[in-house]
């Protein structure tokens, strides 16, 4: 394991006027570590994710990231150009709705290749080869490379979105309910694929989900949020098998047994 964390979050709070989004969140994320943020709608988990991924500016606190050159930077002090560059190279963001993360009117190959072209790859053959390789890794047949995601099923679109994000070899991926709108069987396939890719590539990931099964399968560590605050955090199986807080116990006991 590497000697230093990848991300350090200290006292992060976000208010919308007088209304609380999230309050006083602190944690560290290490390379290769998957952190699940769980909680019900309105618990502040999406606000937290948006602050961490710099889509929102927090009201207080700081988030530091160890850049590829090993320099620690406060994310909220990056210039917009640096921030956007980070987001399309060293980071990924997987949206719940694939249409928010894909270009629906260009081909699957171009969706995967866009990040490569954005960082200056100007060789069509190489871009296409890489796209085919990545489509294969997310189990999309090579002969669909020139089809638009509009003609893809929900599960395929989500897998395409993942390939599009991972093609530049990011070190950190944010995921917002990545299996949200999918059928159960499709979810299982996606989860398994994600689990494999995260392990194989040594990705660090922050996954927002309300589904404890997703947290169990993918994450090493989890944070439970309620009313904007982190009420319980720790090793995923410890939080799920031995929940301490009343709300966590309620969440865990609400899982349907099959």
């Amino acid at each position: 394991m590497s000697e230093q964390p990848l991300l350090r979050v200290e006292g992060l709070s976000k208010y919308y006027g007088n209304r609380l989004g999230c309050k006083d969140v602190s944690f560290e994320l290490w390379p290769g570590e998957v952190l699940a943020i769980v909680g019900e709608s309105g618990s502040g988990k999406t606000t937290l994710l948006n602050c961490l991924s710099t889509h929102l500016e927090p009201s207080a606190g700081r988030t530091e990231y160890r850049m590829r050159d090993e320099v620690w930077r406060n994310l909220y002090e990056l210039s917009e150009a640096e921030r956007r560059f980070l987001m399309r190279t060293d980071w990924g963001f997987v949206h719940q709705n694939p249409a928010d993360g894909l270009r629906m009117t260009v081909s699957a190959g171009a969706n995967v290749g866009e990040r490569l072209m954005a960082v200056g790859d100007r060789h069509y053959g190489h871009i296409r080869e890489t796209a085919i390789d990545w489509l294969g890794r997310v189990e999309i047949a090579a002969d669909r490379i020139d089809d638009q995601p509009r003609s893809f099923s929900g599960g395929m679109r989500q897998r395409l979105q993942i390939a599009r994000n991972l093609v530049t070899g990011p070190r950190l991926v944010f995921m917002d309910e990545p299996t949200g709108g999918l059928d159960v069987s499709v979810q299982a396939r996606l989860l398994d694929l994600l689990r494999g890719l995260v392990g194989e590539l040594g990705l660090a990931a922050i996954i927002v989900t309300h589904d404890l099964a997703v947290a169990r399968l993918l994450s090493h560590r989890m944070m439970v949020m309620k009313d904007g605050r982190v009420i319980e955090a720790g090793l995923t199986d410890r939080v799920l098998d031995d929940p301490r807080e009343p709300y966590t116990q309620l969440l865990v006991s609400s899982i349907l047994q099959v």
């Binding site: 956007r84 399309r88 270009r103 260009v106 081909s107 190959g109 171009a110 290749g113 866009e114 990040r115 072209m117 954005a118 960082v119 100007r122 069509y124 871009i127 296409r128 490379i145 020139d146």
Partner: peptide
Amino acid sequence: EYGLMHVKLYEDIAK
């Protein structure tokens, strides 16, 4: 950020 311009040209070649 002009990667998108090449996406258009990529689409041309692919098609």
